[in-house]
């Protein structure tokens, strides 16, 4: 009975850790992974999503799920404006983009502090919790795990099967050729950045009930987000991010349960270092090499 509960709890912890890593990385998967922009304002975009959800929920009385959807669109529109006014001047200039997005992050953080003050009223965690064998399981985290899985499927579908997805992947690989083949690449860039920003806002809103809502709350997501995307690699950003969230969580969870959360996080960082040392282009590049080799064997 106790083994059962322990196994169940381990699985649940594993799921929540993986979902947390994936949700933290969600917008960055698109903006860093696909567009190759080192977006240091990622945390602030998530913060904006959390604020949008809080305001929609507390001030306007929207039900929480609706507030999350509103956050997605609000931050997506903000992202589109950011791209049109600022970010598009810095494509292909990675270090300039890094400095510029850092500046944007400072302005957003301080601006929020000036307008809304140091704290926002918290959003109550929706749903209750179950307990089994001395462990407790939050309903909301189970929902977040489910949402993470749906987002993976949704993003995979968007980039694999839609016309926008094909145009976006082609544009990010070679913008000049995509343009010469009739793709309105400027519009694709705006849309893609806007989607990335919107997704960051969405995950900020989803994680809002689990965290303190404050102007600089975004910082806590930045490190896990970058680690997840970089360990996943740019070759196939979606499978990369899934692979790295699952792998990193598989290392963090048991060590965290046995030796405490702090050592769990240390283990995650060590694991990330080791993985990047072994697979410098990330998990997805290694997966692709294996696939290519298998395909080549089939056609020979």
């Amino acid at each position: 009975m106790e083994i059962d509960a322990l196994a169940l709890s381990l699985t649940y912890q594993f799921g929540t850790n993986a979902a947390f890593l994936f949700l933290s990385a969600l917008g960055l998967i698109v903006i860093l992974g696909m567009m190759n922009i080192i977006n240091l304002a990622h945390g602030e975009l998530m913060m904006m999503g959390a604020y949008a959800a809080t305001i929609a929920n507390n001030q306007f009385g929207l039900p929480f799920p609706l507030a999350v959807i509103v956050s997605f669109f609000a931050v997506a529109i903000f992202g589109a404006i950011l791209e049109l006014l600022i970010v598009r001047r810095f494509y292909g200039r990675e270090l300039s983009a890094l400095v510029v997005t850092w500046g944007i992050s400072l302005i957003l953080g301080q601006g929020t502090f000036l307008v809304f003050g140091p704290f926002m009223p918290a959003i109550k965690i929706p749903g209750g919790s179950y307990s089994y064998g001395g462990f407790s399981f939050s309903e909301y985290w189970l929902v977040l795990i489910g949402i993470s899985i749906s987002l993976v499927i949704g993003l995979y579908w968007l980039y694999r099967y839609t016309s926008y997805g094909l145009q976006a992947r082609a544009t990010m690989q070679n913008a000049e050729i995509a343009k010469a083949l009739g793709v309105p690449t400027n519009r694709v860039y705006t849309l893609t950045f806007s989607l990335g920003a919107g997704l960051a806002g969405l995950s900020g809103a989803l994680l809002a009930p689990t965290s303190t809502i404050a102007p600089f709350m975004g910082q806590q997501f930045v490190a896990p987000a970058f680690i997840t995307v970089v360990v996943g690699g740019a070759t196939n950003v979606i499978s990369g991010a899934v692979g790295s969230s699952v792998l990193l969580s598989a290392i963090k969870t048991p060590i965290g349960m046995a030796y405490g959360a702090f050592l769990g996080t240390v283990a995650l960082l060590v694991a990330a270092l080791v993985i990047i040392r072994i697979m410098p282009d990330g998990i997805s590049a290694t997966l692709q090499k294996i696939m290519d080799r298998r395909r080549a064997r089939h056609t020979l």
């Binding site: 145009q167 992947r169 083949l181």
Partner: peptide, 13 residues
């Protein structure tokens, strides 16, 4: 496009 499949490259036309 190196990371698109042959079919996807054709579809880009």
């Amino acid at each position: 496009f190196p990371d698109l499949t042959v079919e996807e490259n054709l579809r880009m036309g």
